[in-house]
Write a protein that binds this DNA or RNA. Structure first.
Lengths: 250, 250
DNA sequence: TTTGCTACAATCAAAAATAATCAAAATAAT
DNA sequence: ATTATTTTGATTATTTTTGATTGTAGCAAA
């Protein structure tokens, strides 16, 4: 039997039953569990099913629709980003006032948040605001102009909005991290908002996967010395001399 | 059995029975109490149920109920609303500064807008903001707390945000229209925002299909005399004595 | 309050499932 | 026909899940 045949049999099975175990499939397909696992991995990489311990479950169309809705512009390093997001989510306490910067990495952070937290969230991301309230969390959005490409609120009005707040923690994304230039991003307007947000926060956490290191964009919005960087893999230890680094174990 | 299967069995059980004990579940699922406890913790962390001593209870599904409510509401009189929306969209000129109120009818208004207009839009609706920029229009969102059920920005911060603006036109939805009480809505916070928006606008247009007439909700946010009402079918001509009415031909 | 009972989280060892590895089998290429 | 490549199933070490156990905490009756 061709592997493609097994693939479609597995998908059909899942569409009907919603969940299946590896053992079940091995027996049903008359093949070994090793092969079934390989098939499940392949289908998972294609995004055709959810792999879970013991087997697989059908993809929830609702989730799919939402994923589409969030024009996830960079499907790069998704797993790494999720890792950072999950760790960052654990840093939020009930009494925190948290600023969430717009961006794809921080959106995963919002997804990873516990629905039970009583913290207060402020964001400049349209998608972030929507997700936060869908989780039943208390959320504020800052006012101002909306940038088309990133769905982020920016501009003078946004900066003015931010002045009112005092955050205990703020979670930022970034385009580049370097020892010399600190945290950098290509858009001036966004950089100004980021800068203002950081300056109103007691702690600034930066979520940056390993690809962001030693990259420099045109505008610096924060210096390393004032931030705590959360990353998946630190390739150069010299960063440790300039900032607090949390390397999340996989 | 996959843990995901147990999860959904527990959720289904709870949806039906509203409450369940650990012992019950262990027997029903044919598993140990330890596992059931672990499952309940996991589901609690996901926000899918309330953990209580001895077991768990179904979550108060306000969110879901309201979402459905909004959806069914938005499905009512769709054609009539689209008619109003299309007409209202023609009222926007390139040099206008337009406020768009949150709500299902005004969302259709946004959909009906020409992507070529150079008007400036300000809104308190998350969905509205998103749609506006997706159309490539210049859009601002006001800052403030986000209301879960309607995805509208409300609260003191929202009102403060509005103070800065001077609108040439504002487009409002409403729950009720009556000669005596004017325009009314059930939510105080939303009413205050609507009121503030109207008071900063040169003209206020109210989009109201025929079902809204002679309905009164608890809070009045504007009087008929100060508005221009756009509707699909006017059943009682006495309204013409109190306000400017545009009856859109279908 | 105290007492007794039950439920709980934490811990641990057994069981199950997994990824990684490798040799055999099947398939394709020369 | 022979060689190279891919696929498969078995084996291994590792990880995850599970159920039993234990001490602690919560609850209700005395």
């Amino acid at each position: 039997m061709l592997s493609e045949e097994r693939y479609s049999m597995i998908i059909n099975f899942l569409e009907d039953k919603k969940a299946v175990t590896v053992t079940e499939l091995a027996k049903w397909l008359g093949t070994s569990e090793s092969t079934v696992r390989r098939d499940l991995n392949a289908l998972h990489d294609m995004g055709k099913l959810n792999k879970v311990h013991g087997g697989a479950t059908a993809i929830d169309e609702k989730v799919n629709a939402i994923e589409e809705d969030v024009q996830s512009k960079s499907l790069k390093n998704v797993e790494e980003k999720k890792l950072l997001a999950r760790y960052a989510a654990t840093l939020v306490n009930d009494d925190d006032v948290v600023y969430v910067d717009a961006g794809t990495t921080t959106l995963m952070f919002v997804e990873a948040l516990s629905p039970n937290t009583r913290a207060l969230f402020v964001t400049n991301g349209i998608a972030h605001a929507k997700k936060l309230i869908q989780k039943g969390l208390k959320a504020y959005i800052i006012g101002g102009q909306i940038k088309l490409s990133t769905e982020a609120v920016i501009g003078a009005e946004a900066i003015n909005s931010l002045r009112k707040y005092n955050f205990t923690k703020c979670f930022m994304g970034t385009n580049g991290i370097s020892v010399e230039s600190g945290l950098t991003t290509p858009d001036l307007e966004e950089a100004l908002v980021k800068k203002e947000a950081c300056s109103h926060s007691y702690i600034t956490y930066v979520l940056a996967d390993h690809t962001k290191f030693k990259t420099v964009s045109s505008i610096t919005f924060a210096l390393l010395s004032r931030c705590c960087v959360i990353t998946d893999k630190l390739t150069d230890n010299k960063f440790r001399d300039h900032t607090v680094i949390k390397e999340v174990e996989q």
